[in-house]
Every structure is written in C-alpha cells, then in structure tokens.
C-alpha cells in the first residue's frame, strides 16, 4: 500500500512538471534575467545620477527606490507565468514595495554614512592609509608601511577624518629659510621658476612665493602651488630637493639654526654697536 502511495505521488509530480514545467522554467528565467538587469541597471543609473551633481545619499536613495520598483515588476511577471495572477498577490506586492520605499526614504538620511569610498587615501585619528573594504561593523585600512588595520566604524564616525581624495588637487608647501644677507628677490625668483617649470604643478591657481616671516635666524620663504592628489607626495619631495640643489648652485645659502656666542674679557672692546652697554652691565654685576 505504501509503495502504491509513493508511486502516486511521483506520478502526480510528473504530471505537474509536464503541465507546469515550461511555465516554471520561464518564470525562473524571468527572475534570473530580471535580477541581473536590476544589478547592472543600478550601476548605470548610479553613474547617470552622479552626473547631475546630486548628493551621494540622494543618488543612493533614488537608485534603491527604482531598483525596488523594477524588482516588484519582475516578481509579479514571474508569478504571472506560474499562473498566480490574482489581484490579491499584486496588491500585496504593491503594498510591500510601498512600505520598503517609505522606510528607505524616511530612514536613509538618518543612517550615518562613512565619509570615504574604497580606494580613498584617508587619515582617521593617527592612522593614515588606503581604504581596502568597508563592512557594517568595521573598515579595513592598509597603511603605507604595509599594516592592515581594522577600524570600528563607530570610531570613524566619532573622530576627525581627512579624506585626501575628496578634492582633485592639493596644495604643496615648500618652505625654506635663507640667511639675512642673501638676495631675497633672487631666491623668490628661483623658487617660483622651480614650481612653474614642473609639469605636475597646476597652472591655476598660480604658483606663488611669499616672504612668510623675518625669523630669529633666517628670512622664511614659502612657495605655494597646487598638484593632483595622487602626485602630491612625490611632487613635494622633488620640489624640496630641486630647491635645495638650485639654491646651492645659485649661491643662495639656506639658513640653519645657529647661535652666536660672544665671550668678552675685562679689557675687551665691543665688536658690534650697542654691545658696550651690555658689557658694562656685566661688569657691574
């Protein structure tokens, strides 16, 4: 009796596959193709929306809403192929999609997002490196000395974050101190020329040289120019190298911290104007 029951089950299943199998395969095909189209279409839509200079959050929300609408249409079409085209199912799908869209639209802006993308060079607290991956709980960063650091997202949200790739360009500072007896104008000209003739330095904003300060032991010159973010480090190092070598070649002496000590004996005569009073004070003491 048991064997007959099993046989009946298989027979019924065979009949079902014979009658509904084609519809089932078509429904499955619609579902798979639909999911692939949604995934690829979502990427294209994101690129398209980014051209309109919308906020990343807005782009993401609009993208999610459109993806959900298309997904509901795909599911409804697949169910229709299986013969489930009742009005109730369509209404349920419509209500579920409306609820999901509502939740996304209302709560998305309240969910904190990380201020960088994978591949960006970022400084979080004291850690500087390239972002390799982000998950719900933590962010994986590879520092420039090869360490992999897992940073809790809560720490990132509550800490200062510098994203070096948020803007395309970055300013390079070339500060150098020259002696008081050196030719300031010549030094400024050399420094400006070095910056202008470097292909990586942007034409606008123009490279500029300032006299930053008349410091204790030197006249401080500051060269300022803009380069692409990706070329910042090598540009800065090479501009400093060129400045040192060109100054050497042109006879501009770079100042270094120094302290002149004058030692006077009792019968010593002052070497510089004003020192006489100072020597007298020392004698009185």
């Amino acid at each position: 009796m048991e064997g007959t029951g099993t046989f009946e089950k298989y027979r019924a299943m065979g009949e079902l596959i014979a009658s509904q199998g084609q519809h089932f395969v078509i429904a499955l095909f619609i579902l798979v193709v639909g999911l692939i189209v949604i995934k690829q279409g979502s990427k294209l839509l994101k690129l398209l929306l980014e051209r309109f200079a919308l906020k990343p959050q807005t782009v993401s929300t609009v993208n999610s809403i459109i993806s959900i609408i298309v997904l509901v249409i795909v599911i409804a079409t697949a169910l229709e192929q299986l013969g489930m085209n009742s009005l109730v199912i369509r209404r349920v799908l419509f209500l579920v999609s409306l609820a999901v869209i509502g939740i996304i639209a209302i709560f998305r802006p309240l969910i904190p997002t990380l201020p960088f993308k994978v591949g960006n060079t970022v400084k979080v607290g004291d850690l500087l490196g390239k972002i390799e991956a982000t998950t719900i709980l933590n962010t994986r960063m590879r520092t420039f000395d090869g360490k992999t650091v897992f940073i809790p997202n809560s720490k990132i949200i509550n800490d200062f974050v510098i994203n070096y790739q948020f803007t395309e360009t970055r300013r390079v500072k070339v500060d150098v101190g020259i002696g008081y007896d050196q030719d300031i104008l010549k030094a400024k000209q050399i420094l400006e020329t070095i910056m202008i003739e470097d292909p990586r330095v942007k034409v606008t904003p123009r490279p500029t040289v300032y006299v930053l300060n008349l410091a204790n032991g030197c006249v401080q010159l500051g060269g300022r120019c803009w380069v692409e973010n990706a070329k910042y480090w090598t540009s800065r190092c090479e501009l400093i190298e060129k400045t040192k070598l060109r100054f050497n070649h042109e006879g501009i002496i770079i100042a270094f911290p120094q302290l002149d000590v004058h030692h006077y004996h009792g019968d010593a005569s002052p070497e510089f104007p004003g020192e006489e009073d100072h020597i007298r004070e020392i004698d009185v003491k």
Partner: peptide, 9 residues
C-alpha cells in the same frame, strides 16, 4: 615667454 612648462620627459 618666461618659463616653459614641459608636458613630460
């Protein structure tokens, strides 16, 4: 007329 910026080397 002053400093030419080469495009590469």
């Amino acid at each position: 007329g002053w400093v030419r910026k080469p495009e590469g080397f």
